[in-house]
Amino acid sequence: MAKITMTVNGRQVSGQCDDRTLLVHFIRENLGLTGTHVGCDTSQCGACVVHMDGMSVKSCSTLAAQAAGSEITTIEGLAANGELHPVQAAFKANHGLQCGFCTPGMVMTAVDMIRRHGGQLDEATVRAELEGNICRCTGYHNIVKAILAAAVEMGGARVAAE
């Protein structure tokens, strides 16, 4: 057992857990943030994606201890002041989900993808970037549409702000 401290969605949190505790279990069980999902046992599905120090990682394949001292953002940390994040809004507008199980990981992946590629995203890039995220419902088309729409929206917002 160790005491672990990290910043989650802008708030400093601490919890006791085993050294072997996975970050996803720390987030779900110690912190009660159940938006982050576990969809597989093989590190392949991406339902568990969160951001660690600004980069997407699979929280099912990272120890909570590795994340100690880091800044973590989960799906719960995206919306601000009761307003959906542009990527969340785009998933809603484009029907980018059906059962919704993969959605938190998809949205966190999309935010990271847009951060890295900005307005340069095209369909082929989005599909290649979704390599680590599996959806068994949508057939991906509307997820890709949602991400492209959000990239335009966020790119536009950035231009407007400058």
């Binding site: 980069m55 992946t109 390599e131």
Partner: peptide, 9 residues
């Protein structure tokens, strides 16, 4: 290699 999340770690 793998996917973006794997490449980040």
């Amino acid at each position: 290699i793998g996917d973006p999340h794997v490449r980040h770690m």
